[in-house]
């Protein structure tokens, strides 16, 4: 994928670019808002990663201009500001995701993945999500594995739905908190892990092939055993 990185801190930009290149992405790096904007307007990128505070033109203004020009490229805003309504402001300006510095690289990768690949089962009228032997009926709110019904609590259903729409991709704890609970903060205790282990009990226990895996230092992934 072709990524545009706009980040004024040279060290951070370098580390971002080298990390993403190792993942097989092509990266263009710019250090000011105006350079970043003209690059984004001139080239087709799959994703733009932009720092919120930039010289000349700040990140949110760049995003606003891009959106006003009709560009739909997904934008991930990086920010040193961790405040609750900053995230809201960032999303309101037209960006697609907001990540607070410092962040884990695995978190960044998971979010890039989530932004550049269309979320599964997004079509209107779709009522079934399928991942391998796992089936989720969105109308009857029931889950089955290999035809066997799995009783789920409403929240567990929503977690599983979140995973199934992102099957094969890493989902981080913060993504779950934001996506399933709508929380922009970190609960002190690692509650997410407990929720996941319960869900895992329900969908994997008694079956040979586990579907819900832990990715060390990153989060979780739901994938067909193959």
């Amino acid at each position: 994928m072709r990524l545009l990185i706009v980040e004024d801190d040279v060290e951070t930009a370098r580390y971002l670019a080298s990390g993403l290149r190792e993942e097989g992405h092509g990266c263009d790096v710019f250090h000011t808002g105006t350079e970043g904007l003209s690059a984004a307007l001139g080239t087709e990128y799959d994703l733009i990663i932009i720092d919120r505070m930039l010289p000349e033109l700040d990140g949110l203004s760049v995003v606003r201009t891009l959106r006003a020009e009709g560009h739909k490229t997904p934008v991930l805003v990086l920010s040193a500001l961790a405040q609750v309504d900053d995230r809201v402001k960032g999303l309101r300006a037209g960006s697609d995701d907001y990540l607070t510095k410092p962040f884990a690289f695995s978190e960044l990768l998971a979010r890039i993945d989530a932004l550049t690949r269309r979320v599964g089962g997004g079509e209107a009228g779709e009522t079934q999500l399928v991942v391998g032997p796992l089936q989720l009926d969105l109308l009857t709110r029931t889950a089955t594995r290999s035809g066997q019904e799995i009783p789920l609590l409403p929240r567990e259903f929503r977690i599983l739905e979140y995973f199934m729409r992102r099957a094969g991709r890493v989902v981080t704890r913060t993504m779950l908190l934001e996506g399933v609970w709508d929380y922009n903060f970190d609960p002190q205790t690692n509650v997410i892990d407990v929720h996941i282990s319960r869900l895992r009990q329900k969908i994997d226990k008694g079956f040979d092939v586990p579907l819900l895996h832990t990715v060390r230092g990153a989060g979780y992934i739901l994938k067909d055993g193959a």
Binding site: W181, T189, V194, R198
Partner: peptide, 12 residues
């Protein structure tokens, strides 16, 4: 909502 988030921890 918060209680529901912590419910599994409580049980544990």
């Amino acid at each position: 909502d918060a209680a529901e988030l912590y419910q599994p921890i409580a049980e544990e």
